[in-house]
């Protein structure tokens, strides 16, 4: 719990919009960024936000796409070291096998910052890591539901992510923590929708039939927005109103969920910010200015969005990011 409260760096849209002056320590610096690849829309958005953040700070960003392969990432990092960059950002594709190459970076006195995922390597091999707290994402979603339904009885159906995947485990855990002690809220059904729209739709179709045509369901919690979008369609096909008859809460904050919010079909989403680079650059800035190492784990904010947050505006801001 200590990490969660510590240093929830203001990230996301606020940072995107702010025109605060950045310290000069970053200007003109060359920073290498080894990205995993482009396996999802979120990843693509992370790449474009990183480029934006670098440009805003006058950083010369060298971008390397690893196409989901660790050996490509290791090659890219060695390339960065040979070029003598000032710092390296890595979004590691797997958690093991980094000791050697991170050691090389350390020997060359190049600070390395991990984005989005952690690694199994001694902590002194990297400067810091920037990541979201997935348990908290689930908890924020659960807290919203607890607050929204109050004392009313509420049967929740849950669309899980891929079985055994870390975000699925953590987002489930966080949500369950939030509804613990609120006996009126109960998860009645939980199945995997593999994080995809079509599986989300199929699973929700099954749930609606199994729960008396959906009359027993008060809310749908999806581990990501894509499954929620699929689930919303299934709710509509069953002749119910998503967002009203069945509350819809999910995690990620991709543009399409804001489209659903505009028409009142989604009620809440928790943002997994694509802006991991912003806090990373800020940490580097602080490190170079004050010579003091930052926290080992920087946790990004898990911001809750509801229809009150001007979904149209957020949609317009996000749609160009490559989600």
């Amino acid at each position: 719990m200590k990490f969660f409260t510590k240093l929830a760096v203001a990230a996301g849209v606020a940072a995107l919009l702010s025109s605060a002056a950045y310290a000069d320590s970053l200007k003109g610096k060359t920073i290498g960024f080894s990205q995993i690849g482009s396996e999802s829309g979120w990843r693509a958005a992370e790449t474009s936000v990183t480029k934006q953040q670098a440009e805003k700070r006058g950083i010369n960003l060298k971008f390397a796409d690893a196409q989901q392969k660790q050996e490509n990432q290791i090659k890219a990092i060695r390339g960065f070291i040979a070029q003598g960059v000032d710092a390296i950002l890595v979004a590691p594709v797997v958690s093991t096998g980094w000791d050697a190459v991170l050691g090389e970076a350390k020997d060359a006195k190049i600070p390395v910052i991990l984005l989005d995922r952690g690694v199994d390597a001694p902590q002194d091999l990297y400067l810091t890591s920037v990541a979201s707290d997935q348990v908290k994402e689930g908890k924020v979603a659960g807290d919203w539901l607890v607050k929204t339904v109050g004392d009313k009885k509420c049967n929740v159906v849950e669309l899980q992510g891929t079985v055994g995947s870390t975000p699925a485990i953590n987002r489930k855990k966080g949500f369950e923590e939030a509804i613990k002690g609120h006996d009126n809220i109960k998860i009645v059904r939980s199945q995997t929708g593999d994080f995809t729209r079509s599986k989300g739709k199929e699973v929700m179709e099954g749930f609606l039939k199994a729960e008396d045509g959906g009359k027993n369901i008060c809310a749908m919690y999806a581990h990501n927005d894509d499954m929620a979008v699929g689930g919303i369609q299934a709710i509509k096909d069953a002749g119910l109103k998503p967002g009203k008859d069945v509350l819809v809460v999910s995690v990620d904050a991709v543009p399409d969920i804001f489209k659903a919010m505009m028409t009142g079909e989604a009620n809440a989403t928790v943002e997994l910010t694509p802006n991991m680079a912003g806090p990373a650059f800020d940490a580097l800035d602080a490190y170079w200015t004050s010579k003091k190492a930052p926290e080992k784990f920087i946790i990004t904010e898990s911001k809750l969005y509801t229809p009150n947050d001007d979904p149209k505006k957020v949609y317009e801001e996000k749609k160009g990011l490559g989600y």
């Binding site: 994080f195 995809t196 729209r197 079509s198 894509d226 979008v229």
Partner: peptide, 16 residues
């Protein structure tokens, strides 16, 4: 059919 079903083409997951 799969694209029409979700009103979108999901290149990462369609038919996976």
């Amino acid at each position: 059919i799969v694209a029409g079903d979700i009103k979108g083409a999901d290149a990462n997951n369609a038919g996976l």
